[in-house]
Every structure is written in C-alpha cells, then in structure tokens.
C-alpha cells in the first residue's frame, strides 16, 4: 500500500485526459482547421469566459456562470433528495401492506419507463417555467426507480435481522427505524448514484426549455446565438460538474453509508 500505487489510477487518468486536451488544442489552433468551428479548443472557449467576466448572456440578462452552476446543482440535488426520501417512505408503506403493494406496484412499473423528459410539457403546463418544473422533472426521473429498488431491498433483508431485533424487544416501529432503514440505505443510495446521470440529463433538458439560468440554458443560448464557443463551454462545465458530483456521491456512499448487508 505505497502512496504511489494509491495515486497511480489518478495520475494515469489525469495524464491521459491532459494529453487528449492538448491534442485537441493543437489540432484546433492550426489555422484552416474545420474542427475549430465545431469543436473550438479550450483556449478559445475559455477566453470567452474571461472576456465576459464570468457572466454569460446578453446585456442585462447576463447571469454569472457560478449562479448557473449553483442553480443546476440545487435543482438536481433538490429533486434527488425529495425523490430519495419519498421513495424510501413509499417503499416502507408498501412493504407494510400487501394490499397496497398489489394496488400500486403495477402503477410503478408503468410509470418507471416513461422518460423524465416526456413529463416536461405536462410539468410546464402545471408549474409554468420555474424551478419547480426542473425539480419535478428530476424527481420523476429517479423516484419510480428508487421506489422499486426500495421494495427489492426490503425483500432482500435477511429474515434473521428482523427476528433478532424483535427477539431483543424491538417493536415494529423501532424495527423499521433501527433495522429496515439501515439495511436498505446502502442499496438504495447506490442506485441513487447510478441514476444521478439520468437526473443530471433531466435537469439539463428542463433548463433548455426556457429557464433563464442553469447549465442547460447556457447550451440553449449558444445554440440560439450560433456561438459554438458558448456551447463548448457549457458542455465542458456540465461534464466537469457532473463528474465532481458523482465523486461526491461516491464519497458519501463510502464514508457515510459504507456497510454492506
């Protein structure tokens, strides 16, 4: 367990990424490159950012980049957090009643495959073009999957855990809180992390349909202005932010909810 070996994956991954970016930069710099028009190299789209003082947009409508990133993150985390809590609660309620499971589980399996993007028109009619719409789209993107996962995790709990808890005097409510919840958390959280990509895409699409800020709005603005630098910038920020969030979720998974049942 030398520190060198520990760092090796990061070093190799980082070096490979850096050389790709360098190759892109060199290819894009050469004067008559067709590439530069579609895939402007980093030096080109990053300078857009510096020139505009980290604000993006036209005139008084311009929004700081940081605000866009923050809005997108808040929307995606808001939707995911609400979906996570709601899914665990729904799963728990359904697991308490077989009748409720019979009623609702077909509904879950019918709603789950509907892509979150498909909800956008409906959401706009109901909530208007607002933060609620974006949060709702994220919610719809992960809630059903997580509820199904919660039900599966509850079925997977070794019977002995519940028997032991009851045997040691724990009442049903206490068993739920002290055994069922901790037993299902790691599995459901892992699925939340896997579905983060879906949530991330959902929020970007929601932002493209007219919200004033957010990373999706940057892409849309670039498209409307035929500004490929702006599009490239938006894509780069989206990629990096998504990567960082995924790492954060992984950290929560390995540090906070580390146990395996």
């Amino acid at each position: 367990m030398t520190p060198g070996r520990h760092a090796a994956p990061y070093l190799v991954g980082g070096a490979f990424l850096a050389s790709l970016v360098a190759a892109w930069e060199i290819a894009g710099r050469s004067a008559d490159s067709a590439l530069a028009a579609v895939l402007p190299p980093p030096s080109q789209f990053l300078s857009v950012l510096l020139d505009s003082g980290f604000r993006i947009g036209l005139g008084s409508q311009a929004v700081p980049l940081a605000q866009s990133i923050l809005s997108t993150l808040l929307r995606v985390f808001g939707g995911m957090a609400i979906a996570f809590v709601a899914a665990v609660a729904t799963g728990a309620l359904l697991s308490l009643s077989r009748f409720a499971t019979w009623c609702f589980s077909p509904l879950l399996y019918i709603l789950a495959p509907i892509a979150p993007i498909a909800w956008i028109p409906t959401a706009i009619v109901v909530f208007g073009i607002s933060n609620v719409t974006a949060v709702f789209i994220v919610f719809m993107g992960v809630y059903f999957i997580l509820t199904i996962a919660t039900l599966a995790e509850i079925r997977r709990i070794p019977e002995e855990y519940l028997t032991v808890a009851a045997n040691l005097g724990a009442r049903p409510g206490e068993r739920w809180l002290r055994v069922v919840l901790p037993a299902i958390l790691p599995g459901v959280f892992t699925l939340l992390r896997t579905n983060f990509i879906a949530a991330w895409m959902a929020v970007l699409v929601a932002e493209m349909v007219g919200l004033r800020d957010g990373l999706g709005a940057i892409i849309m603005m670039g498209r409307n202005l035929f500004n490929s630098d702006l599009i490239m910038l938006g894509m780069a920020v989206i990629g990096i932010a998504g990567f960082l969030v995924d790492r954060l979720l992984m950290l929560i998974g390995t540090r906070l909810i580390w146990w395996r049942v």
């Binding site: 070794p158 002995e160 855990y161 028997t163 032991v164 808890a165 045997n167 040691l168 005097g169 724990a170 002290r178 055994v179 901790p182 037993a183 146990w259 395996r260 049942v261």
Partner: peptide
C-alpha cells in the same frame, strides 16, 4: 424477550459497532 436465540448466520447488524450490537436490546431490558 425471555428466550433469546442466536442464529447460525446474519447475527450481527453490519451497520452497528460491537458496542452498538451488544447494546441493541438493552433499552428493553
């Protein structure tokens, strides 16, 4: 609670420390 059984497997709760596991039923004793 008069009769406590130790099962062949899945005995300890993986999310609790030894102290947490041993003390699990204490509040009802």
């Amino acid at each position: 609670p008069d009769i406590v059984m130790i099962f062949q497997e899945h005995n300890l709760f993986p999310w609790l420390s030894v102290r947490g596991n041993v003390g699990f039923g204490l509040r009802h004793s």
